[in-house]
């Protein structure tokens, strides 16, 4: 069987299952009451962490594909990006349903007044069009250049996501710092790559 066959029928389903694992584990821990003293906070942390991780993993795909001349890697990008959106949705659902219990005035106040919530919310809103336009039909309809341009927004989301995390913590900025560092490296890679490509053309 061809490499493409493996890609479609083995690697992709496998990756799907792996990406789902944190959610399955979270569900299991919730079911067995293993989330500790403050389960809602724990869910918020776990889903928040995975949102940001998947966002950064998604952004790592094309640099890897370039560095290792493995364009097939790009075929996993959409799924990873959608998993980021999936975990963001869980993260948000946890906030609205469990944390605030549909207290809309309170939620509204949070979004307006709390910078870390404002920023997280902005990142969520910006992720929506990216998730929607991941459908093949819509990519066609938009045309690849416009689609690419729209999807540059993912960098804005990532910056907002890191900022959101940075403003959540009280004093220990190590973890958001690590995510921030990775994001900067990923962005610098793209600048470097674009430059080198431009040089080739000249």
């Amino acid at each position: 069987m061809s490499f493409k066959w493996y890609l479609t029928w083995l690697f992709k389903p496998l990756l799907f299952v792996v990406c789902l694992l944190p959610a399955v584990l979270l569900g299991y821990d919730a079911y067995t009451d293993a989330l500790g003293a403050n389960p809602i906070e724990e869910i918020s942390h776990i889903t928040g962490d995975w949102s940001l991780r998947f966002l950064l993993i998604t952004l790592t795909v094309s640099p890897l594909a370039i560095l290792f001349h493995a364009r097939w890697l790009n075929r996993f990008r959409r799924m990873l990006g959608l998993f980021c959106f999936f975990y963001v949705c869980l993260h948000l659902a946890n906030y609205v349903v469990l944390d605030q219990y549909f207290d809309w005035p309170e939620i509204y106040k949070d979004i307006i007044k709390r910078p870390y919530i404002s920023v997280g919310f902005a990142a969520f809103v910006l992720l929506i069009p990216l998730a929607i336009t991941s459908v093949d039909k819509l990519v066609e309809l938009m045309g690849k250049p416009r689609w690419l341009k729209l999807h540059q927004l993912v960098f804005v989301c990532a910056v907002l996501g890191v900022l959101h995390y940075l403003w959540v913590v009280k004093a220990d900025i190590l973890e958001p710092g690590i995510y921030g560092f990775i994001l900067i490296v990923l962005m610098l890679f793209r600048v470097w790559h674009r430059r080198s490509q431009a040089n080739v053309k000249v």
Binding site: I40, Y101, E106, D110, R114, P115, Y116, W167
Partner: peptide
């Protein structure tokens, strides 16, 4: 950065 008007009592939901 956050409101102090409410709190979550550990062990409680709302």
């Amino acid at each position: 950065r956050w409101s102090q008007s409410r709190e979550r009592r550990i062990g409680e939901f709302r």
